[in-house]
Each structure stands twice: as structure tokens, then as C-alpha cells.
Simulated assay, not measured.
Amino acid sequence: MAATSPNDLASFYSSAWGYHFLSYHVFKQFTKQDGKSKETLTNDVQGLLSLYEASHMRVRDEEILEEALTFTTTHLKSIHNDSLKVEVTEALSQPIRMTSPRVGARKYISIYENNDAHNYLLLKFAKLDFNMLQKLHQSDLTRWWKDLDYANKYPYARDRLVECYFWILGVYFEPTYSRARKKMTEIIQMASFFDDTFDAYATFDELVAFNNAIQR
């Protein structure tokens, strides 16, 4: 595979890594003989940022990407490019690999919107996609949660619906998995309910009977 910049290669690595193992040696062209990253990489801030993001895809003993992470982190912290400052700061705070996909998308939409070179139509479709999926996520929860009347029936228990649902969004955010999101949220919320029942509601004798019933 031929790549002309860290930006091109990092983007390819990040996208391909999830489907099959891709050797980190493809980044060797950006290192010197002593294994250190080439200083010339600092001339391409966008490429440096992409290399930083790709380095978070590394696994154990990938020395080139370990070095790339250290190198890019050090230099990105000293970036004063106003047009990329917000994006760099966000990346250093929370790399894409460590961000929930939809949260990352929301943050990037705002960053991209402030880029003078943004594509208006692309930005419009990105916002439309985000809002439509957000509406679906909201509809996943509304009816069954209201029917449970949870807050009135179990006032001692924490209402952790949004928190539990957010966990599942890290696994299933696509529209197709609406049923999976609802079922997994129900399970986690129920586990939280049991936890609060043990911690803040029932007596010891009641909990013994309750635990026996669950075990059966």
C-alpha cells in the first residue's frame, strides 16, 4: 500500500484495523534509523493529529506506535494553529478511540462547522443524521418507562435510565439495534433496582427471602 502522508496512512490504519489485523510496520516510513519519529512530521499538523489518533489503535509491543504516541502528544501540546486548536485540544482530552461514536460525532460536527472550508451540504446531512438518530434513541425509552411509573412505585431507588441507556449506546447506537438497546437497558436498570433494594430498602430477613427467590 502506498501512502504519501501520515494523514492518509493513519486514516487507512484506523479504518482497516477494526476489520483485520494490520501490521504497524506501515508506519516505519515516518521513523528514522534510531526508531524515533521524523521531526519533519511536525510540519503537517493535520497529519500529526491523524497519527496521534491512529496510535491509540496500537496493541502490546507495537514500538513504532508507542513512539508515535509520545512524539505526537508532545508536539500537539505546543500547537498554536488557531484553526486546529479546538480539534487538537479535544483529541488530547479524549481520542476518538476512547469516545462513544455519537458523542464523538456531536463534538466533531461543532468543530467542522467552524472550519471555514467546510462543505455546507455535508454538514447539513451530518446534523440531520444526528438529530434523526437522537430522536430514535429518545423514542426507545419513552413508552415503556412511563408505563412502569418507576419513580412513584419505587421512590427509594435511583432513576438511572439515561445513564444505563448511555452505556448501551457505546455498543449499539445504529438504528437497526433499537430492540437490543431497549432490552439491555431494561436489564441494567433492573440490576440497579435490585442493588438499591438491598442497600436502601429491605430488612435483612426480607433480603434473605428475596435472594432465595432470585437464586431459584
Rank of each mutant, 00 (worst) to 15 (best):
F210I: 07
R160N: 13
L161E: 05
D140Q: 09
W17T: 04
L128S: 04
A2Q: 05
K85S: 01
L49W: 09
F193Y: 12
F193E: 01
T176H: 11
E186I: 14
D116C: 12
V162D: 07
I187E: 05
K153P: 08
Q134S: 15
T31Q: 02
N211A: 11
K124W: 12
F30K: 03
H25F: 10
R60K: 12
D82R: 02
D199Y: 07
V59R: 15
L207S: 01
M57C: 14
A16I: 07
M1S: 11
P101T: 08
F210T: 05
D149L: 05
L9V: 12
L141Q: 15
G18K: 10
A3K: 07
P95H: 08
F210K: 01
L133N: 02
M132K: 03
D196M: 14
D8Y: 05
G18W: 10
F27Q: 11
G170H: 14
A16E: 14
Y172N: 07
T99R: 14
F194Q: 08
L123D: 03
D205M: 06
G35A: 02
L69C: 15
Q215T: 00
E90G: 04
V45G: 06
S50K: 15
D140E: 12
K135W: 11
L92F: 04
T70P: 01
K107Y: 02
T99H: 08
E163Y: 04
R158T: 07
E113I: 03
K32M: 06
T176F: 11
D140N: 13
T89L: 08
A54G: 15
D140W: 01
M132L: 07
A117Y: 00
L9S: 06
L49F: 07
V26Y: 10
R60H: 09
Y177R: 11
S37H: 04
Q134C: 10
T73S: 15
T70E: 10
I168Y: 10
M184L: 15
E63K: 12
A213N: 08
L161F: 09
A126M: 13
A91D: 05
Q215H: 09
A54L: 15
E186L: 12
Q215I: 03
I111H: 03
T176W: 01
T4Y: 07
M184G: 08
